[in-house]
Nucleic acid binder design. Structure first.
Length: 752
DNA sequence: CCCTAGACTTTTTTT
DNA sequence: AAGTCTAGGG
């Protein structure tokens, strides 16, 4: 029997299928294993796959789990093998989307509703703020959206928001007095556009089951077994959703680790897991405390760190693996030498590239490592950052699909109008949108018949508007009859997207054209895949709904080459690597500069805990004494967390070299006391770079030139900036002082 | 209306 | 550094 490979607690947790269970799973304790075995076990017990709902937090986790179950069932040669694909498994958001599409009409949406991503949402908020004449310096779209999102995650309606003293007080401190109204308008706009944002997917799902008892009953009947991974990262709405669906059978199994809760910034509430036992008094609790992944040194070092947190569930994670190598700590002069040092350590590493990961706090840190790895011909794979579907050219192209499927999608319309340029400008679209809002109709509708809505535009523009509306309407009609691939191909060719992109022969422009080609390929593959599943007709709407929640771009990059993995610590959750480098261990970076309160620092500490426990054999921490950030050099002291880790687990330094050295050196002194004070970022006005080479030019040093804006001046020098690889000219203007301009762009006139 | 050059701002993590 | 915003010229 396949349960033999589990330890006792694990097996018990797998087999306790009836009633609520809480599995507290320490890092590396085989949590995913228990979940996958549990599902496989259920299937083997004859539970139909369609009755099982498994919720994960990221796409990656869902994919991983699916693969593992597939493998497990294949090994077992199980009869359950075939039904595997009827499993309900995915992120909260993707499962909710699928369920919502079936019953969207009940909530006043069509089944083709659009999912607005963050940039769509921000754009809506920006428009609202502008219309209201709000100060853009204070009402930053991102900040406003964060407030709205927070409210939604806690199921607070706009009306409730307006009456909530605590929220209003917080807003007052940020000098935003109007969030409730903006929130209300925002919701109206989305509804009118037949669109939901990420949070709406969850909130509306909850509304659906709360307001429609039949749907609720049906889903409760269907999901007889519910499993939730990473339960410590669920927010209030997710908690309510799970609670509702689990009634009345209460076959709910949640898995999590409070020590790995790292998503409170998006509303995750650790109390969900802490209070589970109170919510389900009959729940069985399983504690998985033995770590199978890492060496004792790594586990103990991580423990010593996490014990510095005040709030935690009592739990002893231990390893019976080898003691293993000590944790290494490397100090570098700057970010570049850090990347250089890590790359050279990777090059000399005896293990395969697949076994190595470089983990960082922020996505922007990846660049330095990319450069150094490329220099050494070390293949790497980068996760996160701006995903394929966020790129401008892709978003532009997708907006044509979006509007064809959902003519109310105003954000898509605004994008489509702007690219490729067709003589309909911002001013005109401002009028169109104002008109659409006033008449409570889609912007597209206004464009169809501008005169009917008394749009104040000239006849020529009205004609352009009508023509474009007609084109989009035609696409809409076509999208229903044509296969996704044929449709996309048609859109690319008839709207001028392809021609415009191929016109640009700069290297970036070629990239963009290729990206769009790749999108077309992805659609072709999608259609082919569906065909294999026996679905003959795949309209573009199916592709859109599949793609809108997809964030990992290079999933289909299934090459066989071994690669080093580069990603944020957040993205690394749930993964493991033999060798892990955790870089940028500096104050104001890790922990992030934005945490001020203790609970935020504790979350960052948990984040480092997650990072360290990804390592199986070797873990190396590093920091730089100075690094380029936002175009300036920043000096930060080593992270306070370094002194939270018990010294005995570090490699003891044999000699202390005070000299700056490019090679990793043992840090002479770990900051001893906890430094509660944030050391401010020091700005160095003149970065210590000597990468400016004089180049020959028609503008001699000391010669007089004239600029159309800055007036006359004297050339100081002309040089090549090795960092940016731009040729620059520095001029001392008579009236405005010294300016540095791009040589190729500056429009200068020589004076003799 | 559209483009360009220059100024100005932004700072985390993800669905 | 990189992206967004704006003024001004075409």
């Amino acid at each position: 029997m396949f349960l033999d490979s589990l330890n006792e607690v694990q097996r018990a947790a797998v087999c306790a299928t009836e009633g609520p269970s809480l599995i507290v799973a320490g890092a590396g304790s085989g949590k995913t294993r228990v979940l996958t075995y549990r599902i496989a076990y259920l299937l083997q017990q004859g539970v139909p796959a369609g009755n099982i709902l498994a919720l994960t937090f990221t796409n990656k986790a869902a994919r991983e789990m699916k693969d593992r179950i597939r493998t497990l069932l294949a090994e077992q040669d199980s009869i359950a093998n075939g039904s595997f694909r009827y499993l309900w498994m995915g992120t909260f958001h993707s499962v909710c989307t699928k369920l919502l599409r079936r019953d969207a009409e009940r909530l006043g949406y069509t089944r083709d509703f659009t999912i607005y991503d963050t940039s769509d949402s921000k754009s809506v908020i920006k428009a609202i703020c502008k219309e209201r004449g709000a100060d853009e310096k204070i009402y930053k779209p991102q900040a406003v959206l964060a407030r709205i999102s927070m409210a939604k995650n806690n199921l607070i309606t706009p009306e409730e928001y307006g009456m909530n003293r605590q929220l209003l007080q917080q807003d007052r401190e940020a000098r935003m007095y109007d969030i409730a109204t903006i929130y209300a308008q925002y919701q109206l706009r989305l509804k009118a556009a037949n669109a939901m944002d990420f949070d709406d997917l969850l909130v509306n799902m909850l509304r659906l089951i709360d307001q429609h008892k039949d749907v609720c009953g049906q889903l409760q009947q269907m999901f007889r077994y519910i499993l939730v991974d990473e339960y410590q990262d669920t927010n209030y709405v997710q908690y309510l959703l799970v609670s509702r669906l689990a009634e009345p059978q209460r076959n709910i199994c949640v898995v999590g680790d409070d020590a790995q809760s790292i998503y409170s910034f998006r509303g995750a509430d650790i109390r969900n897991i802490l209070n589970f036992k109170q919510q389900y008094p009959e729940a069985r609790v399983y504690k998985l405390e033995r770590n199978y992944r890492s060496t004792q040194t790594i586990v103990n070092a991580a423990n010593s760190l996490i014990h510095k947190n005040i709030h935690q569930i009592e739990k002893t994670v231990y390893s019976e693996n080898e003691q293993g190598a000590p944790i290494r700590l490397c100090a570098y002069m700057d970010d570049r030498s850090e990347a250089d040092g890590v790359a050279s350590q990777i090059a000399n590493c005896r293990c395969g590239y697949d076994d190595v990961a470089v983990l960082y706090r922020t996505n922007t840190q990846s660049r330095a490592f990319e450069n150094e790895l490329r220099k050494r011909n070390i293949p790497y794979r980068i996760y996160g950052g701006t995903s394929f579907y966020q790129r401008k050219e892709i978003k532009d192209t997708l907006s044509y699909f979006r509007i064809a499927v959902n003519p109310l999608d105003n954000e898509a319309l605004l994008r489509a109008v702007a690219f490729p340029g067709r003589g309909i400008g911002e001013t005109t679209m401002k009028k169109v949108s104002a008109c659409g809002i006033e008449h409570h109709c889609a912007y597209l509708e206004v464009m169809r018949s501008p005169e009917q809505y008394a749009l104040p535009v000239g006849a020529a523009i009205a004609k352009k508007l009508r023509a474009f509306a007609q084109q989009l309407d035609d696409l809409g009609a076509l999208s229903e009859q044509t296969d996704a691939y044929a449709f996309a191909d048609h859109v690319l060719k008839t709207t001028g997207i392809l021609t415009t992109l191929t016109l640009d022969t700069t290297s970036d422009g070629i990239d963009r054209a290729q990206n769009v080609e790749e999108l077309l390929n992805a659609i072709r593959e999608f259609v082919a895949m569906r065909q294999e599943e026996g679905i003959d007709f795949t309209p573009i709407t199916d592709f859109l709904s599949e793609v809108s929640l997809q964030t990992d771009q290079d999933e289909h990059l299934d090459d066989t080459q071994e690669r080093v993995t580069l990603m944020t610590v957040h993205a690394a959750k749930g993964l493991e690597f033999k060798v892990v480098f955790i870089v940028g261990m500096e104050e104001n970076l890790f922990p992030s500069q934005f945490c001020t309160q203790m609970h935020e620092i504790e979350e960052e500490r948990r984040l480092l805990y997650v990072a360290i426990t990804r390592a199986m054999e070797q873990c190396t921490l590093s920091f730089a004494r100075q690094r380029f950030r936002n175009g300036q050099m920043a000096f930060n002291s080593p992270s306070r967390f370094l002194s939270d880790i018990d010294r005995q687990y570090f490699q003891q330094s044999s000699s202390t070299t005070p000299k700056p050295t490019p090679a990793p050196i043992a840090i002479p002194r770990i900051p001893s006391a906890i430094n509660n004070q944030h050391s401010p970022i020091t700005n160095n006005p003149s970065p210590i770079t000597n990468a400016h080479t004089p180049i020959p030019s028609e503008y001699a040093e000391g010669s007089r030139v004239a600029h159309r804006v800055f007036g006359q001046g004297t050339v100081v020098r002309v040089y090549r900036d090795e960092v940016t690889e731009n040729d620059k000219i520095e001029i001392r203007f008579d009236t405005v002082g010294v300016k540095t301009l791009l040589l190729t762009h500056a429009k200068l006139e020589k004076l003799d």
